[in-house]
């Protein structure tokens, strides 16, 4: 009886998921073009697209679009996608719609790496600081995975170990903040919030390589992920190697988050909110990886457009804006849940 009902439901959600994916893709493309055109100096649609793909159209557009706007926008798109997928995996594995890589210490680790670098070496260049963030993110990721690894990874232990390591990383950031020059401290704060300002094609390449390496692995295990949502026993009965799949997916989720925060600093709430909205739009019963990726990309790119549209005295990192929108959304979810009884 139940199996019969799953069949048609599966087909209908599939169609809807596909349609939602196409709409999201179209919206993302439109917003991307807008992001290339819009700014201090407006550049025509054709020129901006040409400049972005490397066709020379003359001095201002070549530099503004080709070297500033395009890498910044693409960094936002790729990092948003990484965060969206990372959050979707973690939420599915823990069967908790409120799990998020924001809370498991990697963000704090990347922030601590960047802040310590600024303190010890100085804010010499974006590259040196970013290298510090990468080291911080990978070190915390390795530490968290090592601490939570006992014959495979149990998601709850991963989150708890992450919270503990997050405390340590935060204390290191705060210590470094009290020791450095005030001007450097202001600069360092940017790495504790997350920003896509000044990102270059190299950042885009780094993100693209990480996504290209990990996304196929994740999609390969997507069926296992969906099956595990029905319970470990059901998944085992359907031939899923639960322990192995879970460990691989957890590692992928952590690495995607680590890559994202290493490039931009910790941008909050995208990983939490994007999978939730994707689920709602597709009306899927289980995890939706690609729509989550598209949603994350769309959200981060949109948030960065808002950040850029602010007046010159209020030029703040995009992380401030994602939190300003994401946090009230989460509070609204909680508020609604407490009105409707147990959820």
């Amino acid at each position: 009886m139940r199996i019969l009902r799953i069949g048609p439901l599966g087909i209908s959600t599939h169609r809807r998921t596909f349609a939602v994916g196409l709409v999201l893709l179209a919206a993302l493309a439109a917003l991307l073009v807008f992001a290339l055109m819009q700014g201090q100096s407006d550049i025509s649609i054709l020129d901006s697209i040409r400049a972005a793909v490397g066709i020379s159209v003359g001095p201002p557009a070549d530099f503004i679009v080709g070297q500033v706007r395009a890498p910044r926008a693409l960094t936002a798109v790729l990092v948003g996608a990484m965060l969206g997928v990372s959050g979707a995996i973690l939420q599915s594995l823990t069967r908790n719609p409120l799990a998020s890589p924001d809370f498991i210490g990697i963000s704090m680790g990347a922030g601590a790496g960047a802040v310590m670098t600024i303190w010890l070496i100085g804010a010499t260049s974006l590259w040196v600081t970013a290298a510090g963030a990468i080291v911080g993110a990978l070190a915390t990721a390795a530490l968290i995975l090592a601490l939570s690894w006992r014959r495979g990874i149990v998601p709850l232990r991963l989150i708890l170990a992450g919270i503990g390591i997050g405390f340590v990383a935060q204390s290191l950031s705060q210590y470094a903040l009290t020791r450095m020059d005030v001007h450097d401290a202001g600069n360092a704060l940017g790495w504790l919030v997350g920003s896509v300002t000044g990102r270059t094609w190299t950042h885009v390449t780094v993100c693209a390589v990480i996504l290209a390496a990990l996304l196929p692995v994740v999609l390969w295990h997507a069926r296992a992920l969906r099956t595990m949502e029905m319970g470990d026993d059901a998944a085992r009965a359907l031939g899923v190697r639960v322990g192995l799949s879970r460990s691989i997916l957890a590692v992928c989720s952590v690495l995607l988050a680590a890559g994202a925060v290493a490039v931009t600093g910790p941008i909050g709430f995208i990983a939490l909110v994007a999978p939730a909205i994707a689920l709602r739009l597709t009306r899927n019963a289980g995890v939706t990886l690609l729509p989550s990726a598209l949603m994350g990309a769309l959200l981060l790119l949109a948030a960065d457009q808002v950040a850029q549209a602010m007046p010159a005295t209020l030029q703040l990192p995009v992380g401030v804006f994602t939190a300003a929108v994401g946090a009230p959304y989460l509070m609204w979810l909680v508020w609604r849940a407490s009105r409707g009884g147990p959820s």
């Binding site: 601490l147 939570s148 232990r157 708890l160 503990g164 405390f167 204390s171 705060q174 009290t178």
Partner: peptide, 22 residues
């Protein structure tokens, strides 16, 4: 070093180890 920093540093390590043993 401020007491907020030392407690977070020492405490975070203990917490992570606690989570491992749990």
């Amino acid at each position: 070093i401020g007491v907020g920093i030392t407690t977070a540093f020492i405490g975070g390590i203990i917490f992570a180890l606690m989570a491992r043993r749990m």
